[in-house]
Design a protein around this nucleic acid. Structure first.
Length: 348
DNA sequence: AAGCCGGGGTG
DNA sequence: CACCCAGGCTT
């Protein structure tokens, strides 16, 4: 705490005492760098100054504002929690750790952060920074991605927390991990804790913290059909348990590989989609690729000109004017395609 | 306990 | 390319 200077990494929520805004910032910053999340925090607090503004907003608007930030369940849970507070708690934001935990999308870390920052509860946060600082300083070899570690580090962190100023303590140790005790090339030369740091003493900075798990990637091949029927296009909303829930996309055919435009699978899909209207392949763009934590997405965009008026029988599909495509929340890979090809014809 | 969910920065 | 980021939910 003697090392910590709130001004070193200025963030608009550091001195914030409105629990709603602190909650917004914490959800946005889950697995997200401060610099990446900051513009979203500003957009959300400006658009939705109170939790009731957020609760009463249409879900599509919330998703659109979240577009590009990733982990979209955060946005869905954010909205659900706001509605819960609006309807069940009379708009009064929860004011303690246990009540915060009841909110969708709020786990132990976020509940500890909000309750310590705003309500002065001595709850130690456990995030990637804290795991790293404690693992190095105490030389703890327990893999931090195991449930055992959660208990072990949790007990330790709660013994260490400054009972009188828990919020400052929590912010200090996270800033310390983010800027000094960094994942790579920590600044041990200027570290005030170096004298008693086990990792420093045994030269284990690069080995700690230990992570056990490795994840395997799945490769997928998406074919998006970008329809142009006299200025009309077609989109659908993603549902089910897959990635990008509730975001929009063009009608899509997934396959085991990139298909040739002339392939039977594509012809069948298009026939089904257009209900036998006359269509023509205009051009094909891609493949675009996007790496997710567990998946590599390959996407080709097949542009289709349809001569007749569309008669869509499948209610999943919605026709929209191409100028209005920018009203929909798309995954990054579609956003990139649209921007590349200047298909956003108007701005908001 | 393990798997899944994005996007971006860094070395 | 591998790793990480002010994690949480589902199975």
């Amino acid at each position: 705490m003697a090392w910590y200077r709130p001004t070193y990494r200025p963030m608009p929520w550091k001195a914030e005492k409105d629990a709603y805004k602190v909650w917004l910032s914490e959800i946005i910053l889950q697995q997200t760098r401060v610099e990446q999340g900051l513009p979203y925090y500003l957009k959300f607090t400006e658009t939705y100054p109170t939790v009731r503004h957020l609760a009463q907003a249409p879900a599509d608007d919330v998703m659109k504002l979240w577009q590009g930030l990733g982990y979209y369940s955060r946005a869905r849970n954010l909205h659900a929690a706001a509605k819960y507070i609006d309807a069940e708690l009379d708009g009064k934001f929860p004011d303690n750790y246990e009540a915060l935990l009841l909110l969708k999308g709020v786990g132990e870390y976020t509940a500890a952060a909000i309750s310590s920052f705003v309500f002065n509860e001595p709850r130690a946060v456990l995030d990637g920074n804290v795991y790293r600082v404690l693992a190095r300083y105490f030389g703890i070899q327990t893999p931090i991605d195991s449930p055992i570690a959660k208990r072990e580090f949790g007990v330790l962190a709660n013994e260490l927390i400054a009972q009188q100023r828990p919020g400052i303590y929590n912010q200090a140790i996270m800033d310390f991990g983010a800027t000094l005790c960094k994942p790579a090339q920590p600044l041990c030369g200027t570290c005030p804790l170096a004298a008693k740091c086990v990792a420093k003493k045994e030269n284990l900075q690069d080995k700690l913290p230990i992570k056990a798990g490795k994840i395997k990637q799945r490769e997928r091949f998406f074919h998006y059909f970008v329809i142009d029927a006299h200025g009309q296009s077609v989109v659908e909303q993603r549902t089910g348990k897959d990635i990008w829930q509730e975001l929009y996309q063009f009608p899509m055919l997934e396959a085991e590989e990139i298909l040739q435009p002339e392939s039977d699978a594509i012809a069948t899909f298009l026939q089904e989609l257009t209900q036998d209207a006359k269509w023509q392949l205009t051009r094909q763009k891609g493949p675009y690729t996007q790496k997710l934590t567990h998946q590599k997405i390959n996407a080709v965009f097949i542009e289709i000109a349809v001569a007749e008026k569309l008669n869509l029988t499948d209610t999943r599909f919605k026709t929209t004017e191409r100028e209005k495509l920018n009203n929909f929340a798309f995954p990054k890979i579609i956003d990139c395609y649209l921007k590349d090809n200047r298909l956003y014809l108007s701005l908001t």
